[in-house]
Amino acid sequence: MTPSPDGRPIFLEIADQIAADILVGAYPEQAQVPSTNELSVHYRVNPATAGKALNRLVDDGVLYKRRGLGMFVAEGAPEALRARRRAAFADEYVRPFLAEGRRLGLSLDEITDLIHKEDR
């Protein structure tokens, strides 16, 4: 796993990746997600880092622990993740996109035109 340029800890990157995998249906509700050791070997990171990623998702209510069995996708997690991603969409995509358009001297109409053209 390559560290992100803004210095975000690797465990957050891995947590995001697992969340993205849940969103695309790789792990349905109530399905078991890979163990700390499996994630460690797959992403080539220290197991402590992989463990932190899983714990972060438990804290967020995306996963839950079954003692002695492992980690499972919580009921309603995909829907909750989608809602969260939608809420972040304006901040993470729309605002920087508008700012860059404005820096280049594009009007709001020109920007909307571009969006419609791309959507065709």
């Binding site: 070997v41 080539r44 197991p47």
Partner: peptide
């Protein structure tokens, strides 16, 4: 080396 190290460490 890196894969084997992590696999050994995990097991």
């Amino acid at each position: 080396l890196y894969d084997e190290l992590l696999a050994e460490y995990a097991a």
